[in-house]
């Protein structure tokens, strides 16, 4: 019997084209055995949320380097809750000042990883968070 794979949407919201980080993380998650649904650039919050639902993703990772992080994190989290999918783990990274992180966590983000975070930290955290989420189901 197959084990239950972790499915993660990795998305680049907004107009920011810097996708080195998103791609490196996507690869690292794949190499950790996860199924990564990669949406590519210029996604609206609506597209990201709809993708999460259609793909039955456990989590969605968003990468933003343009400064629009607060806008997108809150919008995506709110929309997921509206669609009765508040259990989906939202995490992310990019150029995000430390001072903005508490606000994002407050809004419902599971974790925000700053520049220089090893991918292993991100993978371990996500594995733990998904395990916790599934235990509640």
């Amino acid at each position: 019997m197959d084990e239950r794979k972790i499915r993660v949407v990795v998305a680049k919201p907004g107009l920011d084209g810097h996708d080195r980080g998103a791609k490196v993380v996507a690869r690292a998650l794949r190499d950790a055995g996860m199924e990564v649904i990669y949406t590519g650039l210029r996604q609206t919050a609506e597209q990201i949320v709809e993708t999460v639902l259609q793909e039955d993703a456990d989590a969605v990772g968003i990468s933003i380097l343009s400064g629009a992080h607060t806008f997108y994190f809150t919008k995506i989290i709110d929309m997921l809750r509206e669609k009765d999918a508040g259990d989906v783990i939202v995490f992310g990274g990019g150029v995000i000042p430390d001072s903005d992180i508490p606000g994002l966590i407050e809004a419902g983000a599971g974790a925000v990883f700053g520049p220089g975070t090893p991918t292993t930290v991100c993978v371990e955290w996500l594995e733990g968070a998904v395990a916790k989420k599934r235990a509640k189901e």
Binding site: G14, L15, D16, R42, S66, G67, A68, F71
Partner: peptide, 11 residues
């Protein structure tokens, strides 16, 4: 433009 939401003047 709706696509510009949250991005004006940022970078």
């Amino acid at each position: 433009d709706p696509m510009a939401q949250g991005e004006c003047g940022k970078v």
